[in-house]
Amino acid sequence: MALNTPQITPTKKITVRAIGEELPRGDYQRCPQCDMLFSLPEINSHQSAYCPRCQAKIRDGRDWSLTRLAAMAFTMLLLMPFAWGEPLLHIWLLGIRIDANVMQGIWQMTKQGDAITGSMVFFCVIGAPLILVTSIAYLWFGNRLGMNLRPVLLMLERLKEWVMLDIYLVGIGVASIKVQDYAHIQAGVGLFSFVALVILTTVTLSHLNVEELWERFYPQRPATRRDEKLRVCLGCHFTGYPDQRGRCPRCHIPLRLRRRHSLQKCWAALLASIVLLLPANLLPISIIYLNGGRQEDTILSGIMSLASSNIAVAGIVFIASILVPFTKVIVMFTLLLSIHFKCQQGLRTRILLLRMVTWIGRWSMLDLFVISLTMSLINRDQILAFTMGPAAFYFGAAVILTILAVEWLDSRLLWDAHESGNARFDD
């Protein structure tokens, strides 16, 4: 018995066209964080690309023209004298008006014999932002004059995390709450300039795509075929072959399989920071003279006294001054041990922890910024005066060393310790 099946006739004509040209192939790229070699397709503007294995951002879609970056830099340069030299806060102490600005706080630190601690604050609040705007201006002028731009481009990517104007702005709020127990506070004209400078700096850093600047100024022929001998440069993120001198053909720094002496430098910085954190938390970090009496505060006791007036601000200072430094030390110690013992479990967790400490590390400088600003506000000789204690130097040095330890660690070593050939990683 035959089955009668109805015929289905399409209502619209289906047209099949042959592909007349070869589909576009992607360029081969190595991930600078996990060293995976993959094919990167062509990316349009405002599109980002991520590593298929570790999800690290390979290409950032946010990109401004150099002219727009230069305009932002010149605007920031105009704001800087007002943000640093004009009063941020006014207080009335014992019937006398006192003005506080950024430069005055750094000068008070240096004047009291601790120039190293003052230079830490100076670099993060004044030096690094000033280098940022002058570097962008150098790129703008240098591109037109045919100057060598490689050193500036190499420095810009590392400079971003040292620009800490946003953290200093939080420190202004913390210092205001600490001082309000002794005097009446009012915002100064410099505060508005400083807030504007923070906003412009944040926007500029978020749109400063150094890798795209490398592509514009020093374009290189990408690798179009897969080759395990391809290496990625950690300076400019170019994937290719080393030249005859073993250097990256684009930025001219040595092109090595792994960062040289990464573990040794990381261990040295980490152990030194552990040693410095002990006096930083045991010795007094601030000293207040009130009517001839002397009151010393460690980091913890200062947080407890701050909690009596504002528990939320005390929580912020606790996280930045105690929780973050010790968390960074514990995480980095764990990561280094996992590399030495070739741990194969929990790779995803370790990668996330490394990215976390990379982002939060700079916030530990908050305590030094609060001390710097408070020193310029309260300084009335023996009637009422505020000065920093010996722990300030140890704390600042420990924070900087932990930042350097994270920067010096080559994250690809975590993958080397893991089993080879993993296309995915999980716990």
Rank of each mutant, 00 (worst) to 15 (best):
D227M: 11
T402F: 09
F393E: 03
T75L: 05
R247M: 09
A385P: 00
G361N: 01
R424M: 10
L352R: 13
L139Y: 01
L337W: 14
V357R: 00
G293C: 06
Q180A: 12
R348L: 08
T5R: 13
P81Y: 11
G173H: 02
C343G: 10
I96G: 03
L263A: 04
L290Q: 01
V121R: 00
I330T: 13
Q186K: 13
L200T: 12
P129Q: 04
V357G: 05
E211S: 10
C31E: 00
T11P: 14
W92K: 01
T5P: 14
L69R: 06
I319K: 04
R97Y: 05
N101V: 01
M304L: 05
Q220C: 06
A73F: 15
N101E: 02
M304N: 09
L377T: 05
A56V: 14
T358E: 12
M36I: 13
D60V: 10
L230S: 12
Q220A: 07
L234A: 09
V357E: 09
L377E: 03
D426K: 15
T9A: 14
V125K: 03
D181S: 03
A137D: 02
R158W: 02
A280S: 03
A397C: 05
M164E: 05
L79Y: 15
L40S: 12
Q33P: 08
G246C: 05
N44E: 09
S39R: 12
P32R: 10
L282F: 08
S119K: 02
V16F: 11
G118S: 05
L270E: 05
D60Y: 10
S376P: 04
L336K: 05
Q112W: 04
V195L: 15
V203H: 05
L352Q: 09
P284N: 01
P242S: 08
E211F: 10
T9S: 14
F74P: 12
G85V: 08
K111Q: 09
K342H: 15
F82W: 08
E212P: 14
L404P: 01
T134K: 07
P242N: 09
P222F: 05
M164L: 04
P52M: 04
D416I: 11
R294Y: 07
A128Q: 02
T5V: 08
I403D: 01
L276P: 01
R294L: 10
I274P: 02
L404F: 05
L79C: 03
R144D: 03
L337S: 15
R225E: 13
L300D: 02
L413D: 06
V357Q: 05
N143A: 15
P24T: 08
F82S: 06
L384W: 02
N4H: 09
Q180L: 13
S420D: 13
L130N: 08
S364V: 00
E419M: 15
F386L: 04
G389P: 01
D166T: 15
C124S: 05
R30E: 02
L66D: 15
I98G: 04
T327R: 01
L270Y: 06
I98T: 07
I330Y: 14
L366N: 09
C236K: 00
Q104L: 08
G315P: 08
L191G: 07
E407W: 13
Q180E: 12
P242T: 14
I126Q: 04
C266G: 14
Y182L: 13
M155F: 02
G240H: 07
L197F: 07
R247G: 04
G142N: 01
L89A: 05
R97A: 05
L368M: 15
L306G: 00
C343N: 14
C124R: 00
P32Q: 10
R53K: 13
D367G: 00
E211G: 07
H340E: 08
T9C: 12
F369N: 03
I285A: 03
W140Y: 14
P24V: 10
G85Y: 06
S176K: 02
F141D: 00
D35L: 01
H340W: 07
T224F: 07
L336D: 03
F194A: 13
F238T: 05
A312C: 11
K229C: 11
P129F: 04
S273H: 03
Y168P: 06
S48F: 14
V152P: 04
G61H: 15
I371C: 05
F141P: 05
L191S: 11
L409S: 08
V189N: 14
I96Q: 08
N379H: 02
L278T: 06
L23W: 11
L413Y: 11
T67Y: 14
Q33F: 12
H237E: 14
M365Q: 06
I371H: 00
Q47K: 05
R259N: 06
W415P: 05
A100C: 10
G346D: 09
I106S: 02
A71T: 10
F333W: 06
G142T: 04
M1W: 00
N281W: 04
Y394E: 06
A405S: 09
D166G: 15
R68L: 12
M375V: 13
I185C: 05
C236L: 00
I360K: 01
G95P: 01
Q345R: 14
W92T: 05
F123E: 04
D410Q: 00
T204G: 06
M356Q: 12
P219F: 06
I136V: 09
D427V: 15
S321A: 10
I274S: 11
S411F: 07
G118D: 03
T224K: 14
Q244R: 12
D99M: 09
G127V: 03
I319W: 05
M155N: 15
M332T: 06
Y182E: 06
